[in-house]
Design a protein around this nucleic acid. Structure first.
Lengths: 172, 172
DNA sequence: TTATCGTGGATAATTTTTATCCGCATTAGG
DNA sequence: CCTAATGCGGATAAAAATTATCCACGATAA
């Protein structure tokens, strides 16, 4: 059982985007630089977040990414599912009916008890992730982390965020 | 996030072994046949269960595998960890300190909040798995599943289990 | 003594993950 | 209008993990 590295990157990016002001955006290349990641591959994950409605993207110069909704309404589960896909980690292959002494299909209408138990545990996992809001992550970071780190991150965001032309959306 | 197919196989095998009487064993080849799996590869997973102390193995003709302790004291977590390894699914790569503006190491003594949140969810997952006992799985199967399936499985176990020479261990 | 079985290592096939690249559409700024 | 910066999507490749097979070996029941 393993989570791809993209999950870590995606969450860090989302947390960083939570720091950009108003409708401003931050280019994917800047975030790749901030975390020492390959820009082209990070874009793949950011695209996944965009496709899931977690991020918004703006093309063109001074384009980039921003959160599609307030950090209060983005959970770690949202991000994990966007990057890793919505399928459960445990996939029942119905090997119970793959043996040589196969019965009629009507003998297997009830779901496999093993699958039920595994999926139940996975619901607990997702429930816990759903309780972690991005805003909590950011708030804890701001209050708990080393002040130097916080300052450095804020400076980075300040330096790389791109204000947007006044569209109808809110402006900081 | 994906679990290997070996987990499903391992749990089904363990559940089947819960049905063998006393100190009797069941050969890996029989279980591979029962579930339509490649015998050589299934053996790998059964070995992992043996190495973790979940199964016992007996070499020689009329050898095979049996549970190393009562099914009441084997949980799904035991099996999942044995097959998938004990490492958490989320591994913090500390990408927060991999950017170009690295700070002193002392700025990163506190664990990354993202990692903390992810690991907390994983503890919930494992706790849920730890509450599923193999004996529960088997009991539910016996009472809920289609009687034809139960009968077929019992017959299979009956046919393939190998009684052991009277060692000091209990005998059915 | 022989045949059956688990053990462990080596190896290969397959799939997934990670990563790179290029052409395209969009758009801010001159 | 032109240019350059940026995201988007697809194709492709490199790397790693998973899945699968095989063989030589030790153990042991018959």
């Amino acid at each position: 059982m393993k989570l791809g590295e993209g999950v870590e990157a995606a969450i860090h990016c989302a947390a960083m985007l939570a720091g950009v002001e108003g409708a401003a955006t931050m280019p994917g290349a800047a975030m790749a630089e901030a975390f020492g990641l390959s820009p082209s591959y990070l874009l793949k994950h950011l695209n996944a977040l965009t496709a899931s409605g977690i991020l918004e993207s703006v093309p063109g110069p001074s384009g980039g990414f921003r959160l599609a909704r307030p950090a209060e309404r983005i959970t770690l589960l949202d991000i994990v599912l966007a990057v890793e896909g919505r399928e459960p980690a445990f996939r029942c292959g119905e090997i119970r009916q793959r043996g040589p002494a196969r019965l009629d299909a009507s003998a297997y209408v009830k779901p496999c008890g093993i699958s039920v138990a595994m999926l139940k545990a996975e619901r607990a996992y997702r429930a816990a992730l759903a309780e972690s809001r991005l805003s909590d992550i950011v708030a804890d970071y701001m209050s708990d982390a080393d002040p130097r780190s916080v300052a450095a991150n804020c400076a980075f965001v300040e330096r790389h965020q791109r204000p947007q032309k006044s569209s109808s959306t809110k402006q900081a």
